[in-house]
Simulated assay, not measured.
Amino acid sequence: MSTGPSFPPLMQGINTAGADPFEAACSEAAQGCDAGTILYDASPERLRAAIVLAPEVALSDAAAMVPLTGVALQNALGALGPSEMPVHLCWDGPIRVNGGLCGAVRGATDTQDADAEPGWLVTGFELVFARGNLAGGETPDETDLMSEGCGDLTPVDLLESWSRHLLNWISRWEDEGMGPLHTEWAGLAYGMGKDGTFLGKNGHFLGLDEKLGLLLRADGQTMLLPVTDLLEIRS
């Protein structure tokens, strides 16, 4: 008899069986489900997962859970995938494996007030394992894990590893503050020091502020895009 994924203590899983785990997590969170609930949909083609969180800090601090989710995923891929496979995180969500788009991280919450403590926060990701029979060069900016040498990696293995790394990073964030997460994320940032477009704004990616907001230089001025701008607001 098949069993579901194994998660760390204080985390529990719900298989959405083809439904969007992120949307399901937002719905469950709004209805008051337990923090630590992981909703997931794992298939040979892709892994989608989301977790319900209840951070007891202002949204401006809690929004760090979005980049933290990406860091945990990168760490899981680093532990289970080929040692030479580069995984980088785009500030606004996309995940790049060996330079190609391979997935994305996202987040949602129930308030727009950066100074308020959110009632709930959901973060999640999607990662492509296999794209089917694509002709060479058909999607040159996209990739999948199978194409990058992860033939022995299963979606469930990655889901379990992600949950463990996620719990570890949340514990470090609670105990040590933003410093370790800032250092780790900066080392994984895609496009830092280069020109790019972020949330519809063009400029030079200078770096990150202390809360992982993006510092963008454009037209001789530096603007800050806070991590809270990445969050989808749900009523």
Score class of each variant (00 low, 15 high):
S2H: 12
L10W: 10
M11S: 10
Q12R: 15
Q12C: 07
Q12V: 05
G13W: 00
N15C: 11
D20F: 02
P21W: 03
F22G: 02
A24M: 08
C26T: 14
E28N: 04
D34K: 14
G36W: 08
Y40W: 15
A42I: 11
E45N: 10
E45H: 10
E45Q: 12
R46N: 04
A50N: 03
A50L: 04
V52Y: 01
L53Q: 10
S60A: 14
P67D: 11
L68M: 12
G70I: 05
Q74A: 13
A76Y: 08
L89I: 01
C90E: 13
C90D: 13
I95N: 02
C102T: 15
V105K: 01
G107A: 05
T109N: 05
T111F: 10
D113Q: 13
P118K: 08
L127W: 02
N133E: 15
E138R: 10
D141N: 14
E142G: 01
T143I: 12
T143K: 07
G151K: 07
G151V: 00
G151P: 00
T154M: 07
D157I: 00
S161A: 15
S161I: 02
W169H: 14
W173F: 15
D175R: 14
E184A: 15
E184M: 09
W185I: 06
W185K: 04
W185V: 06
W185A: 01
W185P: 04
A186N: 12
G187Q: 05
Y190S: 11
G196K: 09
G196I: 03
G200V: 09
F205N: 08
L206A: 08
G207E: 03
D209G: 04
R217T: 00
R217W: 02
D219M: 06
P226S: 10
L231P: 11
E232G: 11
